[in-house]
Every structure is written in structure tokens, then in C-alpha cells.
Design a protein around this nucleic acid. Structure first.
Lengths: 234, 234, 234, 234
DNA sequence: CATGAATGAGGATTCATTCAT
DNA sequence: TATGAATGAATCCTCATTCAT
């Protein structure tokens, strides 16, 4: 436990002993760690700066000295986690592979990262979106980046498919957007589920495979022009 | 306008004139309306009891008299909205139809309800889940109920398929659950998108169709044994 | 002593017993009383809202409920005291009397009021001017009103004098402004001194008479063209 | 520019380059310069030690090493400025001249000094008096010294006058003191005005002349027994 | 029923001040 | 000598909540 931990019984993040005289860069990371944890678990409003400072193993004024305000701390947390997630996904994608393999590897990376950083994921997915424009926008930007990536893969798949197809299907812009939203939503839901090991959630690879099964075949059908319609007979 | 509406320009919910001698049941609904609206738009913490009382067109002590505390008010709001959503979906499902039609009708009902009650949907999907255990659990329970329903439909579809299939596929329990989670997540994401009319989101029926296209084909492939696997070549 | 007076030993303003359920208008005056006292004695920054609330015999939130912020409280205090001072001076002036008598009666009223309301006077004269633009301006406006009144009296005196003068003097605008500044400054200084009874300061009438002696004769000389110049020989 | 000057754009006082190894006496003066400037412009509370240290071009701990605390720094600033003002006035007085010339030369010195050291004057006249007993007393002592000097001059003038007067007037001690207070107050007010060049204030000599015109004639009248009294008829 | 009056408790933020290097 | 790192102690302000009428 960290020295100086007072009343509430919260240990310092990472179990680090509260140490004196640490260089600024390190302290800042400790504070961000604490912020991510606290914000993810309690939400922006409920997390108190007292709590965060204690979790970081420092006094409150130091948090303000380095990060200026609760809002800026929140922003910094979001930025760090968003960057980490995007980086992880980028690193996981197998470049020069086929479109479906690229998507699958990206998804695997995504699920692996969110499973390893559940607080970061909660922060981005749940908390940041509830706190109004500035933060929501920040996350929306990251999401847009991912959606764009997925859209591009779908386009690539369409081209790949078209090469050998008897009757190449066309996908309108709205349809593509709908698919991207659905896919990202499904991924998020699976990530939540996968993050919850107690609920018997899947591993990252399993989640990625499930999602590919869910999405890839449907996409192929669409491209082939085999649409599902309500008028279809059971 | 409701009497007593003070400075801020907020009219009473539903445009109801603030009148004396209203039966308790009605007053409570007005308060819940106000609560849902305020909580959805500002979040639990940011919504103040003052604001809610004014929005409901009553005095603050009356809110306390009927609903005891902010927490209980929040819980009551969540419960009402969750029940309304589940009821709407249930009512929309065409019993005795084929599994895909049941799923489609249920999704249509879901998208229709969320589009008509955006504040309720925001409350459930965004706000309640960020306020820690007690409320998140409440919503999680509702979600589990829906996931279970979807899971059962997928199972039914599998059985239907098996009856006439040359080579019946098998779906492990985890796989089915995964698909259900993915589908529900996709639906939620589409509901958010559809709720945002300015972003050119789809209507309820369109959203349902998009999702069916996306999901049903994949399911069919799975049942046919055409699984996507990472080992697959290109 | 007022009930509920806690630690610091400060009694409520006016010695009033802390009473419950007082109408808003009355409470507001009590708060302003407390504010004037606290601000005058400690300055804007040093006076804490805790201290003021205790002095007013109420809890802090009530002060905020009625007066919104420390700044607004300060402004309200200044406005009330400025208005009271101007009103007192106006009421004291003997209209339709000769110019010197008008000036004398006004000064008497001024010294009487400042002596009876030393905290109000300190607030206006000392504290408000130290707190930057918004407040300084407020006081400057009041001061300007008084200077204008004095200037007008000097003008009237000049006309009265001119009627019977062999060689009527002229006063340039800058000279008049200088005289007005000097006179007001002298009055302020005497008010400070008069407010300090322990230092053997004069009564209001004495102070007024002293100032008339100081100022009126000099003014007469100027009008007569008998200027003091450094070149004058001993 | 001084090294270490960070963001806010504030240059070091006196444009001194921040240099290492400066003798203590010099450093202390730099700190006092910074203190006077900061305290005069922002007030005691608003001026932060950070700001002052930066303005002085040194690190905060050094300020504490040399001056111990904010209070002591403030006191030191007041003492230095008060001594400077008194010294300047003393040096300006033409000894062995007639009383009015002595007064005039002293006033000229006073106005010249305050015009050249506006921050010092603001510190003494405005800021120090609003910070409660310890500092106000310090300034009051200086003021008393000046009032005593003026009182003595008025006494001397009375004696000079008495020597050649047909009908020597008498001035009670209180009257003399009152006149002195009035004169000093008038001087202070004019100094404030003169410090504000934008408001078209006068030069030092002009201010002194204005005041002499204003005051000396009144004094002469008094000595001649021509007192203004309220009973006088228009 | 309905409400104006009132408060306890807690949270963000700032700053003078001190070490350890 | 000089400073980056760190904190205790306030201070302003807000809000859920309760009475007395």
C-alpha cells in the first residue's frame, strides 16, 4: 500500500508505494492512471479530485499543478486512452493481407486491447460520451477514424469480390454507413462482454471470429445481391 | 405555460398547465417525465432537483413527498423506461411467425420505440450505465432479457433450419450467445444513429432491414457450416 | 449574542438574536449589514463568506441563494452605501440658501453621515477603490456626482461674487477641477479623522466649518484675482 | 529579457537580465521592486508570490530565503516606499525660507515624488491602508509625521503673521490640526489625480500652486480673524 | 396539498510555504 | 546559492434535503 493512504482504503494505482520526489513525467502518468480508473468506475462527476489524488499517491494541489483542472485531466485521460487504442489496433492489422484478414486482425487487436485495458475502454465507450460536446467529440473523432478504416476494408472487399462475381452487387453510401455503424456497435458490445470474464465472455480471438462470422457472410450476401426483405416467406 | 415557471424559460413537460388538485398518479407521471428528460439531457449529477421540479410544474418538496430522493426518482425513471421498451418490443413481435420474421418484427418495434422516446433511450443506454452499480445493474437486467430473447430466436432458427438441412450445422452455446450480443450491440448502435436525424439516420424499418441483411445471412452461413476462420485462405 | 454563533466569537450584526423564518427582504438587509461591516474591516479578499454569513446570523448557502456570489454581494453593499450617502447629503442641503450655506449644509450632512456610518464610509472610500474597475467605477460615479454638485456651487458663488465685484476673476476649467478635487480630498481626509473619535477628531459641524474656512476664503481670493505664486516675496 | 521568464509575458522589473551570483543587497532591491509593483497593481491578496518571484527574476524559494514571508515582504515594501517619500519631501523643503515657501516647496517635492513613483504612491495610499491594522498603522505613522510637519508650518506662519498684524488672530490647536488634515487630504487627492495623466491631471508644480492658492488664502483669512461661520449672513 | 425559508455536507480550486537536491 | 517537487489549509460555491406555515 502506498504511504499516506488515508481514510477510504483505496490503494494507489498499480500498488506502487507512494514515493517522494519523482520526475514530473512519471507523476503525470501516475495521475492519468488514477484518472482513468476513477473516471471509468465512477463517472466524471462522481469521481472526486480528492479520490484521484489519493489513488495517484499524491496531494491534490500537485494534480492541479500538473493538469490544471478536472476537465483537463479528463481530456488528457481520454486522449491517452484513445491514442493507445488506435495505436494498438493499427499495430495489430496485418498489412498486405486480404481485406477479411485485415479486418479480422484489426478486430483481434481491438478486443485484445480493450480486454487488457477495461478501464480505458469504459472511459472511452461509456463515460466520455455522456459528458457533452467537447469530450464526445474527441471520442467521436477516434470512432470516425475506425469507422473509416472499416469502410475502406468493406470497399476493398467489394472490389475483391467484384473481380470474380457473376453479378456484382452495389452498395449505396447509406447502406455502407449503416453496416459500419452496425459492425462497430457489435464490436463494442462484444468488447463489453469480453471484458466481463465472470459473465463467461470470450477471448479476444473468439470475439473477433464471432464478429467475422456475424458480419462477413452478411456482407458477402449483400454484395451478391441476396438481400433479406420482410416480404420474404419464412 | 405552467404557472410558477420561473426565469430559465423551461416550459413544463408536455405543456401541461400547472394546476392544483391533480391526482397523485398523474403527478407522479409528470415528475417521471421531467426526470427522464432532465436525466437524459444533463446526466444524473448535472440534473438538479430544482430543475426537475420546475420542469414537472410542481414544487420541490412535493417531488420529495412522492419520490423520496433523487436516487429513487432516478431508479423509478429507469424502471419505467425499461419496462416501456421491453413491452414495446414484446408487443411488436409477431408470435407464431418464422424465427426471422419474429426477429425482424422485434427489431422494428425496438427501433420504432427508441426513435419515439429518444430521452428514454438515452437514459437507458447512456446515462444509467455510467452511474455505477445499482442503476447499471437495472439496465443490464433488461438487456439480458432481450439478449435471452434473441438467443432463443437464433436457437429456434437453428432448429428450423436443421429440419430441412442436408448437412445441419451445429452452434455451440457460446457462439449463439456471442451472436446475440453482437446483434444487440449492432441494434443499439443503429438506434443511436437513427435517433440522430440530423446525421441522416434511417427510419425504424430501414434500420431493422439493414440489421437483418447484415445478421441473418451470416447466421445462415453458420448454420450451413460455412464458418469464417482465420485459417481460411484469402 | 445570536444563537448558533460558532467558533470565532463574532456576534451577529446589530446584536440581533439569530431568528428563524424571517422574510427575504429583511434577511437581505441583514446580509448587507454584515457584508458592509466585514468588507470595510477586512477588505474584499480577506473577508470570507463564512465570516459574513455568521455575522449575518445565517448559513452560507442562504447568502448565496439571495445574493448569488461574493462579487454581487460586494456590489450590492457598495450600491446601498453609496445611495445612502448621496441621499443623506442631498437631504442635508438647504435649498434656496446662498451658495456658501448650501455647501456648508451639504458638508455637514456628509460628515454627519460618514461619522454615523463609519463602515459604509470605509467601504466606499477605501475598499471599493482597491478592487479594480467594476467597483472603482461605481464609486467614481458617486464621487463624480458630488464633485459636480460642488463645482456647480463654486460656479454659483462666482456669479454671486461677480455681481458686486470691481474686477471679476475668471476661473479656468482646469482650475475649477483642481479645486473640486482638492476640496473633496480634504473632505475625505476630515471624514476619516472625524470618524476616529479616539484621535480627538471634530464633530460633523466642526469639520464642516473647518473645511469652509479652508476652502471658501481661498476661493474668494481666487475670484478676486489674488493668486498665490511662488515668486511672491515672503 | 530575464531567463526563466515563463509564459505570462511579464518581463523582469527594470528589464534586468536574470543573472546568477548577484549580491544579496541588489537581489533584495529587485524583489522589493517587484513587490511594490505587484502589490500596487493587484493588491496584497491578489499578488501571488509566484508572480512576484517571476517579476523579480528569481525563484520563489529565494524570495523566502531573503524576505521570509509575504507579510514581511509587504512590510518591507511599505517601509521602503514610505521612507523614500518622506525623504523626498524633506529634501525638497527649502529650509530657512518663509513658511509659505517652505510649504510650497514641500508640496512640490511631494507631488514630484508621487508622480515619479506611482506604484509606490498607490501602495502607500491605497493598498496598505486596506490591509488591516499592522500595515495601516505603518502608513498612518508616516502620515502623522507629515501632518505634524504641516501643522508646525502653519504654526510658524501664524507667528510670522502675528509679528506684524494689527489684530492678531488666534488659532486653537484643534483648528490647526483640522487645517493640516484638510491640506494633507487635499494633497493626496491631487496626487491621485496628477498620477492619472490620461485624466488630464496637472504637473507637480501646478498641483502645488493650486493647493497653495486654495489653502493659503484661507489660512490668511483665519489669521486675520475673518472666520467663516454658519451664522454669517449670505 | 403546496411552498418559501433554511442548511449540512462536500467538491473544485488556489496559494503561501517548505524540502531535498 | 538556487530550484523543481510537493503539500496543508483555506475559500468559494452548489445541491440534496427538510421544516414551518
Amino acid at each position: 500500500m502506498c504511504a499516506g493512504a488515508r481514510s477510504k482504503g483505496a490503494a494507489c494505482v498499480g500498488g506502487a508505494t507512494r514515493s517522494k520526489r519523482v520526475p514530473r513525467a512519471v507523476r503525470e502518468q501516475q495521475m492519468l492512471d488514477a484518472g482513468v480508473r476513477a473516471f471509468a468506475r465512477s463517472g466524471y462527476q462522481n469521481a472526486s479530485m480528492d479520490e484521484i489524488a489519493e489513488l495517484a499517491g499524491v496531494s491534490k494541489p500537485l494534480v492541479y499543478l500538473y493538469l490544471n483542472s478536472k476537465e483537463e485531466l479528463f481530456t488528457a485521460c481520454i486522449r491517452r486512452e484513445a491514442a493507445a487504442l488506435v495505436t494498438a489496433v493499427r499495430a495489430a492489422v496485418e498489412r498486405d493481407a486480404s481485406a477479411d484478414r485485415q479486418l479480422w486482425s484489426g478486430l483481434s487487436g481491438f478486443f485484445a486491447h480493450t480486454a487488457e485495458h477495461p478501464d480505458g475502454w469504459t472511459l472511452l465507450h461509456l463515460q466520455a460520451r455522456t459528458q457533452g460536446q467537447p469530450y464526445a467529440r474527441e471520442v467521436a473523432a477516434m470512432r470516425a477514424e475506425i469507422v473509416a478504416f472499416v469502410t475502406q476494408l468493406i470497399g476493398a472487399a467489394a472490389r475483391e469480390h467484384a473481380r470474380g462475381a457473376a453479378r456484382p452487387g452495389t452498395l449505396a453510401g447509406t447502406e455502407v454507413a449503416g453496416l459500419a455503424h452496425a459492425l462497430v456497435g457489435a464490436a463494442e458490445s462484444l468488447a463489453d462482454w469480453a471484458g466481463d470474464r465472470r459473465a463467461g465472455g470470450p477471448s479476444a480471438k473468439e470475439a473477433a471470429a464471432t464478429l467475422m462470422n456475424f458480419a462477413w457472410a452478411g456482407l458477402g450476401n449483400l454484395l451478391r445481391g441476396q438481400e433479406w426483405t420482410p416480404e420474404r416467406i419464412g
